[in-house]
Design a protein around this nucleic acid. Structure first.
Lengths: 225, 225
DNA sequence: TGGGTTTTTCTTTGATTTTTGAAAGCGATG
DNA sequence: CATCGCTTTCAAAAATCAAAGAAAAACCCA
């Protein structure tokens, strides 16, 4: 999941929309801005963003209704943003499916922190994730990504990469590697070499810099640099 | 699955703690109250509640630290409750792993609504619904819908899908699956494979994209994408 | 209730696909 | 230039899938 998270902004006050838009972009989110409920909803369905910032007082289709309709088919976090500062409205907003409720005038810092908090949950980053160099390994999902693009690995390839990724900078000799990844084995072949080769071919496409380095006479290391 | 959601309250002001406690119980939650950070954390580890209401100014161990330590091992929602009403503290609280931040004096109705909102996400049992990809599972009614159209599943098929749907993106190996869906069994067959096959046939009609993916050498995952 | 019917559950089997590992020759390196 | 590492090739092994049918359970109707 290395692509930018997409945030949909639905807010009819243009200055505020612009303001939020710029701030979110500065935090490296991809943004889509819409100015009324119907357009917001249709953009939502079209793009399926990672989070929605939603004003309540919207032309054409009320914000609450937008929240409800989104909730019908999706769990995407919704942060409601509004001038209404009374408890009943907050309760109503939250019970309509919103995940959070911020009252205007709000601090942009707080909004950004809340956006971060919600996105943190949603993306699998929260659970067993190992980052190394420009790779992201999702251990639960047994996936490896680079630049948001998925790299297909076989079971053994994944285990081998996991060993390296969990211990960046540590040199393993062939015997250690064989012990961990091929425990059932009575060594004596060059499996390790071959599999390191497989990984290199898949991970180091193009003439990129080395990821898994050979330590002559010893074994292999994964180095980030 | 049908048990009450458990809420852990960590708050040193006894009257406030008592107040929240009673209100939550009135809403049919099971509550545990603790008055300092260390006890709160150990209760958390012992009971693994569904949600935590956490005061910031705590004796023995600061609330922020409690939040951080909980986050180290768990995604359980944390609502911070405090008298500190400045943006920096909010940002700090949220960035320490909290999911929400409420300033005292707060309205109990708002707290309850926020508790509902967070539990709705985490614990589908609260709404009785699990949504995943373009499917909606109604757990109470043991029904599955796509585009409002009902998909007929047998009991075992439903249980298997429920396991996947509650943990989208997580790879299960055959043994884990058998443990959960066929607990009475002494494995040694390929029931899992066969039932995954059944689900696929029913859920992936036409040449649609895969829902349940096989991870060769490991098991199966439900991925939304 | 009880006997027949339908549905669900689970096993077996064999075809198909993918992964795995050994060997061998080439290439790089100190 | 001799050793160690790399890559390719290919056959064996393993994993997965789908189909078919036996066994069990659930259901129905008299």
């Amino acid at each position: 999941m290395e692509r930018k998270p997409q945030v949909l902004i639905v807010e009819d006050e243009k200055e505020i929309a612009k303001f939020i838009d710029l701030e979110l972009q500065a935090e490296n989110y991809e943004t889509i801005v819409t100015y009324d409920g119907v357009t917001g909803l249709s953009k939502f369905r079209e793009l399926n963003p990672d989070l929605v910032v939603l004003d309540l007082m919207l032309p054409v289709l009320d914000g609450l209704e937008v929240a409800r309709r989104i909730r019908k088919t999706s769990n995407t976090p919704i942060i409601i943003l509004t001038a209404k500062d009374n408890v009943e409205d907050k309760v109503l907003g939250l019970d309509s499916g919103a995940d959070d409720y911020l009252v205007k005038p709000f601090s942009i810092e707080e909004l950004l922190a809340r956006v971060r908090a919600h996105l943190r949950r949603v993306n699998p980053a929260v659970t067993g994730e190992v980052r190394v160099a420009d790779l992201v390994m999702n251990l639960d999902g047994r996936e490896v990504f680079r630049d948001g693009r998925r790299i297909e690995l076989s079971a053994k390839e994944f285990e081998l990469l996991e060993l390296f990724a969990r211990n960046p900078g540590k040199v393993f000799n062939r015997f250690e590697i064989e012990e961990k990844v091929w425990p059932e084995y009575t060594g004596g072949s060059n499996v390790v070499d071959v599999y390191v080769g497989y990984l290199r071919r898949k991970l180091e496409r193009d003439g990129e810099r080395r990821l898994i380095h050979t330590v002559r006479g010893v074994g292999y290391v994964l180095r980030e640099e």
